[in-house]
Design a protein around this nucleic acid. Structure first.
Lengths: 348, 348
DNA sequence: TTGAAAGCGTTACCAG
DNA sequence: CTGGTAACGCTTTCAA
């Protein structure tokens, strides 16, 4: 059902103060009785020019009185470049792990005097999105996940982006790459389960769209870990609903698995509950391991084994961006940044 | 420990193709052999002017060949306004509920031809942040939570924002308000627990910073629900860690509570686990209710009672924004938009 | 149907 | 130390 807004009457606004047009630096200059250049010098603390203290004060007062705010577009048009770092806003509900990383990154970049914006590019795909981003003439673009091709990188660079950094499974021609290879996550999990003596291993693959970029490499990682052994790998599609969990658990004995890597801790929790409701002993009958090392894993009984991911620090990435911006000609760097380690608890 | 990036050597870039400067509409015009005006007409499909088909083709081809992308700043500078809707990027790890809402909203706004960006304003507070936003000259600003005062609203409006919408506990002078009163959430929970016969009621208040805007109204709501009854309300500060949960549970018998409203489902899960580890029966000895109606609540045993929140639809909000932009003179609307209903499961 | 020119708000250069 | 002026890229009015 659509939520209907309930309007609350308010007293009419008190004679709105004449919708003046937006004040410009010229207005400030007029009010302060100086030239526009002087205003610019004062407000930007230009060190090449000395302005008398009384003049400075008059300018600052005039600016405050008018509520003057500089026009970023005009400024960067004149300057020929901006300090804007753009990243697409996440379109899928993203874990707290990633959210925290983004935050750290934003903080680190703003310390370096960049403005960070997340562009809500819903429905735009690949190079289409790249064009939309390019219109804002960002000095750098950070793109998590796949989806940006060499064409897209070229568009961005031709539009003045001095650094394009991808955070994803593989590097893209022309862009710096932070390789976050989720294959390693699966490999960790697979190896762990094998070492614990398990041989018939299931791998949960979320049915929710948009997660393939992570889930398929993780599945592949398990396959790679077990290639050439006597273990088998079974792909287990699973939607993140109670019913789907129950359905999967219902056919558990037919599946005959003795271990599962559950994509991440949230799916692991779902599956653990479903298995327990079904009377399947964890880890006795079936070992279970998740990934992402979320808090909920520690709260389950048995405590959930998991693959802990170590993302790069926001500061490191911010510095990479800054370096790339300062030296755009440099050969794109490629870094492996996804540390994956098993946290062995009770469920495996 | 700081994560160290591991560099992977790459083959040098193949003689980077002459770092041309970014192509402008003048370049397109030159290549197509027409004037800049014609380029603008063609690329914007200006209906007031008819351009011959061959010319159109030449312009399009030239634009594609150069990889021309229009300069948003120049465009909006000339136009005197932008189609940019700005919202601050969330600084605290935000629940999936809110994340989904943001996404829906972005989609709806882009359907209406707005560009949505989330501004990473870390460290900036209140009116300081408002100034930073104003520099981008957004046509509308959406601000969740408190923190924006009437001064901030004024700055934004003087900078040309035709709509300022707050989503928070109270309305702000001059801005449209979507009242998301979390007091109602607490009221629901308190009433529910009272009706279930509970009288000594604890309320979890997260110790994590940045959540006060939600947690305090929720606490207050419980107080309001129970004012004038024989029930007592005890404030329970709690950090979201296993240890903090165990510490709280350890003194449970001393506290002598028979019910808890746990701020939200995540804190409820933490507390439920700690209580169960301590041998406290839920709901027999202590009833427990969360909020936000997350998936994890359904997976707990006993299943977690919760307060379900109904946020406004992204479409409704997008339409409010659009209306406000089209008619900036209108009296600011104030809507109550937070539907709160108890979902009674097994834990209360 | 196309072209020339003005102007949006800034800043940097160069005279006073 | 300060003021005039040009230029950034684009759209739009007016003239051809």
């Amino acid at each position: 059902m659509r939520h209907v807004m309930v309007q609350i009457p308010k007293t009419p606004a008190p004679a709105s103060p004449a919708p003046r047009s937006v004040p410009t630096s010229a207005d400030v200059a007029r009010l302060a009785g100086v030239s526009r250049a002087t205003v610019s010098y004062v407000l930007n603390n230009t060190s090449a020019v000395r302005i008398s203290e009384p003049t400075r004060r008059r300018v600052h007062e005039a600016a405050k009185e008018l509520g003057y705010v500089p026009h970023a577009a005009a400024r960067s048009l004149r300057a020929g470049h901006s300090r804007l770092v753009l990243m697409p806003a996440p379109t899928v509900p993203v874990g707290q792990l990633y959210g925290q990383f983004i935050n750290e990154l934003q903080w680190a970049l703003s310390r370096l005097d960049y403005t960070v914006v997340q562009h809500g590019s819903v429905g735009l795909h690949g190079d289409e999105a790249a064009r939309a981003w390019a219109e804002l003439r960002p000095v750098a673009v950070l793109v998590p996940g796949a989806g940006l091709g060499p064409k897209g990188v070229a568009v961005l660079k031709r539009s003045g982006a001095r650094a394009v950094v991808t955070l994803g499974p593989e590097s893209v021609e022309g862009a710096h790459a932070l390789l976050m290879d989720h294959e390693a996550v699966g490999r960790c999990a697979g190896t762990h389960l094998y070492e614990r003596g398990r041989r018939r291993i299931g791998v949960v693959v979320p049915e929710e769209a948009g997660l393939e970029a992570f889930s398929l490499p993780r599945l592949e990682g398990v396959r790679n870990a077990l290639r050439g052994t006597d273990a088998t790998v079974t792909r287990l599609p699973l939607a993140h609903t109670e019913e789907a969990g129950a359905r999967l658990a219902a056919r558990w004995h037919d599946l005959g698995l003795d271990a599962v890597f559950a994509y991440n801790d949230e799916y692991a929790m779902l599956l653990m509950r479903a298995l327990q409701d079904q009377g399947v002993d964890v880890p006795g009958e079936t070992a279970l391991i998740g990934a992402d090392d979320l808090m909920i894993g520690r709260l389950l009984r048995p405590r959930l084994s998991t693959v802990h991911l170590e993302l790069p620090s926001g500061r490191d990435l911010a510095e990479l961006v800054d370096r790339a911006v300062r030296d755009p000609g440099a050969v794109p760097e490629t870094h492996k940044v996804l540390g994956a380690t098993v946290v062995h608890r009770e469920s495996s």
